[in-house]
Design a binder for these strands. Sequence first.
DNA 1: AATGAATGAGTCTTCATTCAT
DNA 2: GATGAATGAAGACTCATTCAT
Lengths: 220, 220, 220, 220
Amino acid sequence: MAQTRQIRKGKSGQRSHRSGESGANGLRTPDKRRRILDAAIEVIAERGFHSSRVADIAERAGVADGTVYLYFKSKEQILMAALDGAFERFYQRAKEELAPLSNAPAKLRALARLHLRLLNQHRSLAVVLQTELRQSAKFLAEFSHRELKGYFDLIREIIREGQQAGTIRSGMSDKIAAACLFGSLDELVTSWVLSNREYDLAAAADPVIDLLLSGMEARP
Amino acid sequence: MAQTRQIRKGKSGQRSHRSGESGANGLRTPDKRRRILDAAIEVIAERGFHSSRVADIAERAGVADGTVYLYFKSKEQILMAALDGAFERFYQRAKEELAPLSNAPAKLRALARLHLRLLNQHRSLAVVLQTELRQSAKFLAEFSHRELKGYFDLIREIIREGQQAGTIRSGMSDKIAAACLFGSLDELVTSWVLSNREYDLAAAADPVIDLLLSGMEARP
Amino acid sequence: MAQTRQIRKGKSGQRSHRSGESGANGLRTPDKRRRILDAAIEVIAERGFHSSRVADIAERAGVADGTVYLYFKSKEQILMAALDGAFERFYQRAKEELAPLSNAPAKLRALARLHLRLLNQHRSLAVVLQTELRQSAKFLAEFSHRELKGYFDLIREIIREGQQAGTIRSGMSDKIAAACLFGSLDELVTSWVLSNREYDLAAAADPVIDLLLSGMEARP
Amino acid sequence: MAQTRQIRKGKSGQRSHRSGESGANGLRTPDKRRRILDAAIEVIAERGFHSSRVADIAERAGVADGTVYLYFKSKEQILMAALDGAFERFYQRAKEELAPLSNAPAKLRALARLHLRLLNQHRSLAVVLQTELRQSAKFLAEFSHRELKGYFDLIREIIREGQQAGTIRSGMSDKIAAACLFGSLDELVTSWVLSNREYDLAAAADPVIDLLLSGMEARP
DNA sequence: AATGAATGAGTCTTCATTCAT
DNA sequence: GATGAATGAAGACTCATTCAT
């Protein structure tokens, strides 16, 4: 519950809503857009995209229904923007954290840790990413093409670097390897989201990387 | 009377289309249920669950709207039943095909091949599984608990067998290993579904198994 | 108030609405479409097109809101269809009544009488024709082109016939003459509609025709 | 942040467009009211009253949305005021131009010419008068009572003058005669507005007056 | 069992209007 | 006076579901 919610039940007896709100912190429109996005992630995580009413999101964000449409064109655009923003932040951070690392296995490990750690910290976002993002082939395809592709390409690049540097086995498709890494992480997050237990998701990063690097097969 | 009236356009005019069919062999209802399920998978794969109208499914199945409710309690139940059935058939077959195999790596390879081969053959089902199944956390959780869990447990069992037999590395969490295998396959299917190219999905089974068994890291 | 209105206030406590309705006269769906059209004319005459809610029309017609959309594509289509139908009936009747008449002045007189008489009998329709029909240039243009044009052409044809037969002054544009006749009648109806007095509109037919035939100017 | 935010697209970015204009000559509000009225006529002529947003009118007038409400109480009041003003100017001018004329037929001719000439020169106004004025029976009734009645009475007075002076046929209802004249002119304007051709509307004044004065009937 | 016309609850979105600055 | 971001009421339309036949 990152956003303090506005108490607006009944929606009528709130004559001084504007002045009360801005008076509280002296800021006008601090980042109403951001509040709507955060509210959207929370509400959608709780009820699913189709069951979430725009009115719910507005209420959670502490704005009027119509205000949502000053910032976003449609309900779907809210979800899009929320996911875009979240992904953008992740992607940016990933690039920063990987920059200083020198070899491919270390980079993959760092990426896995970051991936799981961030979602571990923001469960609502994880829920939305693992479920609503896939709500429809069209939606997923569009988002996938726009955002996930960058992530995938980043992984593939690291793998190819490793192959050139001799730290990653050659003769292995970087595309398939990237799918395995992403798919493994994604599946862990999904399991974590579906489970109601609050175990530490991030702890799975190392075992997964170890498995993917060394393989399952017993070796003499 | 310049205005043509609507009234369920394109439906009344095809009265004889289907009744002719059932009229040919009397009053039986052999596979009406199955026709509805198949129609549902197709329609939902094309338009997504929420955009699919029950009327669309009924039309595709060649039955009246109301007839659907003689077989299923709700629109959601149709999807449930369709996925349950598909999964049941997959699961049954998997157990049959793995029975004769003697070692864990071979079983995992067979499972991966079957997984990808079947979905490769039934793209509509793949689309629905990879997208609509996740329509909401609740839905996914329920299905996951009911069906996927069996699949997961099967994989974990094979891994543990392998660990006992010494073909799979010990000291590796069977849960995480299963997640990696399932996640990898799942991601490959998702990519295949989202891509519009009709490449052979099944061909990816061996590379994936090789990677998971031997690992990515170069070894001297 | 041509249609008996269904008493459906509250919309809920009416369990037996269907059977009650059909039980009353033994007819199922007598002409639900027609009832909706009649209700639309009444409601729109009372409140104007934009202030009329589809729910109002449905209620007046004694059907559920959604039923309206089984017969018409949109609220606007209801109005269109209602006007089209009314006009069609008028036009048909005009052709029948004029057929036996032999000279242009008599035909024009008959047309004027019919025009005013019919609207005198159906005030709601008159209200809608004189006001809502012109609600927007686009709407009017479309309707005008489709329906009024036929009426106009009919008048022009009669005038040209009269000119050839020598009963109507030559050297007069049939187009302008038709505009004067139609405009005069139209204006009388508008005045009648706007006035709250219930005077006999039809009585104006002869004076108007006399004026248009003989002219205003005093002649020696 | 792939999504561009909206926020009143196309409005914020043109801040300097209008303020530059008013900045050029200080803080006065000379004709802001008039600019709003003119903008309203244009916008409403283009899109119809109900499809015209107050924001559109404000933008066209170069003022902020809220400013409109410093001059007018509601959107409907804008239309009222615009039509009232236009009509007032017409009516004033009519009285001036008719004053020097000595006989009824000449006055009627002058009035028809003025009526058509002015609307010919201001098509947007003509569109609004012929269509939006009739947006609802109530609206039309109110306007009609307030403004058109004066015009009507003027015509009737001229006719009665003519009857007393012997230039207009006696035994003819001045009310019906006025309706015919007004209706004829009105219909010509409507046709002109609906037609997309830009023919000279004013040219129809004389033929109409000739017809109304002399009648359609052929006379020996 | 099968039909399909009818139902009516449910919600996104628009836009006239307000008011703090 | 002027602004324009914010408000929130209002309603057309959809579609899952029912039930009389």
